[in-house]
Each structure stands twice: as structure tokens, then as C-alpha cells.
């Protein structure tokens, strides 16, 4: 027997703002877009900023508010990184969609329904440069009937000609108060019990990413029921407990290589993700007061190199051991051998 599927929605979807004015904390964008709703005139747009702060939400909300549910399908094209987006798609799919003319402006059922279509390109920074180049002309040719919304994390990955054709909006990271108020709102709706400590833990581990915060909250609720402590949240998020980082650091301070090696072995056996550990070591190092600037610089350099190696797929144990050894050298003021550079 196959189990039944309950309609338990992801909270991220459930509490996604449906209207532009509900989008938290992004005042400029909201002002411009509310204006758009009134006048129905709209430039090409480029939204950029870190993940989980409402870029896609805003774009979807404005599209819905402009066209309403009926026309939405025929007027809005949504493409993101999981769809194939090579140069071929730009040449065929986007162009075909853009080329279709639309009727004149008529208000339908309370929606403005302006006489153009919207193409939303989510995660535009993962498009190839060729594909972006192919878009340049398309944007201009069909600018009468089509508006483009680009959404990306890194504006530097969008080629200049595209960026200059758009009105750019930077989405600000969400402040702690706004995040707390949003989380508390959800807790109230879902009947959850969240104390102040858990709340601050949640905003610390999600680092300004509201989507992540909500996902963690939902995960914790599923596992631990309706009253959630900060420990539960940490175990769901996979953040490494601070004492593990501290233990590694103490081992490095001692200047005993074998001790550090043992500590590294323990961390690997516990299965903590090393890339996360590196960034937590980084936090500790930067904030530590008893480490001189030069030592910090030496450590950070190593952390950066190890991170790059991990991205390339290098072995976690060896990289962590290497970092530990260099942290030890730096902390104990031992000179690094000159012949380290290959």
C-alpha cells in the first residue's frame, strides 16, 4: 500500500508574500513597483542580492498582481536554472514567447493587465555568457511587448550590456528585527512555542536568509513537536556546535601535532561538514582578541586556500589537517618553511 500524501505544504511556500506591499524590508523596490501597479508602466528590471530575502517573491508577486490568475499563464514566462537555458533556448523559446503580440490594455477583473508580457529569468547569473549576449538584441527588438525581470545573486556575473538595459535594484539583507517578527508571525499561525534564546539562535544560524530560517523551523517542528529549543534548531541546521570548534582550537594552541591530528580525526568521524567548519573557524579567528593581525592573516590565507581545494573536491581530512597544522604554526609563532611554495 502506498502511503497517502497529506497536503502539508512547505511553509516557505505557504507564507510567501502574495502582494508586493507585503514584501518585508525592501522599501525602494516596493515603492517603485507600487507605482508600476498604478501607472502600469514598467522598465526592465534586475534584482540582485543574497539568497532568501525575497527577490523571486517580489517578481512573482508583481506578475500576479499585474495580470491576475487568468492571464498569468499566457503573459508570464518563468525560467530558472533547472530549465535548460543554453543559447538554443534563448533563440527559440524566449524569442517565440517574446514575439507574440498582445491585445491592448484592458482592465480585467480588477487587475491592471498592461499590454506587455513578462519574462522572469531566475538565477540569471548561471546563464552562460553566450546566452546572455544572445538576449541583448531580443530585449530591444521586443521591448514594446515584453519586459524582462532578471534575478541573480551576483550582479558581476551579468554582462554589462544587459545590466545597463535594466533598472537595478539591490535587495538588502533582512535585519534581525524583521526576521524575528516574521518568524514570530509564523509561530503564532502554526501554534509553535519558541523562546527568546531559540529565536536568536535561529537568526544567527540562518544569517539573514529568511527562507533558510523558515525551513529550519519547519524541520525542527516535524522532529521535535511544537516547542522548540535552540538545541533542536542547531541539530536540524547541521551547524557545528561551538565546543567542537573550540576543542580543535585548543589543540592547535597546544602546539602538539598529534593532539591536533586526533582532534581532526574525531571531527571527520563525527561527520561534520568541513566547509562549514572552515567558516566557523574563520568567525572564531576574526573575533579572537589574543591573536595578532599577522597571525590572523596567515590563518585566513590558509582557510581560503583550503576552501578552494574543497570546492575542487579535495579530501576533507587532508585539508582540515593542513589547516590545523598551519593554524598551529601561526598561533605558536613558528616560522613557515620557505619551501612551502611549490
Amino acid at each position: 500500500m502506498a502511503p497517502m500524501l497529506q497536503s502539508s505544504q512547505q511553509w516557505v511556500e505557504k507564507y510567501r508574500p502574495r502582494q508586493v506591499k507585503d514584501v518585508a524590508h525592501q522599501d525602494e523596490v516596493v515603492r517603485v513597483l507600487t507605482n508600476t501597479l498604478e501607472t502600469t508602466s514598467c522598465p526592465h528590471m534586475l534584482f540582485y542580492g543574497p539568497p532568501g530575502i525575497g527577490k523571486t517573491t517580489t517578481a512573482l508577486a508583481i506578475a500576479h498582481q499585474l495580470f491576475g490568475p487568468e492571464l498569468y499563464k499566457s503573459r508570464v514566462l518563468e525560467l530558472n536554472a533547472s530549465d535548460d537555458r543554453g543559447i538554443n533556448v534563448v533563440r527559440t523559446k524566449i524569442k517565440d514567447f517574446a514575439a507574440v503580440a498582445v491585445g491592448s490594455a484592458q482592465r480585467q477583473g480588477g487587475y491592471p493587465c498592461p499590454p506587455y508580457k513578462i519574462i522572469i529569468l531566475d538565477e540569471a547569473d548561471s546563464m552562460t555568457e553566450d546566452a546572455q549576449n544572445a538576449l541583448r538584441r531580443t530585449m530591444e527588438t521586443y521591448s514594446k511587448v515584453t519586459r524582462f525581470f532578471f534575478i541573480c545573486n551576483y550582479i558581476s556575473r551579468i554582462i554589462e550590456p544587459l545590466a545597463s538595459r535594466c533598472a537595478k535594484f539591490r535587495f538588502k539583507p533582512i535585519t534581525e528585527e524583521i526576521m524575528s517578527s516574521r518568524i514570530l508571525h509564523i509561530c503564532k499561525e502554526e501554534g509553535l512555542n519558541l523562546d527568546a534564546e531559540a529565536l536568536s539562535t535561529l537568526s544567527y544560524i540562518s544569517q539573514g536568509d529568511l527562507r533558510r530560517a523558515i525551513t529550519y523551523l519547519q524541520g525542527a517542528t516535524r522532529l521535535f513537536g511544537s516547542s522548540i529549543s535552540s538545541k533542536d534548531l542547531i541539530s536540524v541546521s547541521g551547524v557545528i556546535p561551538q565546543d567542537v570548534v573550540e576543542a580543535l582550537f585548543t589543540a592547535c594552541r597546544s602546539g602538539d601535532f598529534d593532539l591536533a591530528n586526533k582532534e581532526v580525526n574525531k571531527i571527520i568521524a563525527e561527520g561534520y561538514p568541513v566547509s562549514l567548519l572552515l567558516s566557523q573557524i574563520f568567525d572564531v579567528v576574526v573575533e579572537a582578541e589574543d591573536i595578532s593581525d599577522e597571525q590572523k592573516a596567515r590563518i585566513c590565507k590558509r582557510l581560503a586556500e583550503a576552501d578552494k581545494c574543497l570546492v575542487d573536491g579535495a579530501d576533507e581530512y587532508l585539508q582540515l589537517l593542513n589547516v590545523a597544522s598551519h593554524v598551529m604554526l601561526a598561533l605558536c609563532n613558528m616560522p613557515e618553511e620557505l619551501n612551502y611554495e611549490s
Binding site: F257, C309, D312, D315, L318, L321, N322, S325, H326, E337
Partner: peptide, 16 residues
């Protein structure tokens, strides 16, 4: 030990 573990990490990365 420090130096050897540095090179082990270095060559493992290269190997990848």
C-alpha cells in the same frame, strides 16, 4: 609533520 601533511593535502588536491 607539518610540512608533510601540507604536501599530502597539496598533492591530493592536484590528484583530484
Amino acid at each position: 609533520k607539518h610540512e608533510i601533511c601540507h604536501w599530502a593535502a597539496y598533492y591530493e588536491h592536484r590528484m583530484r
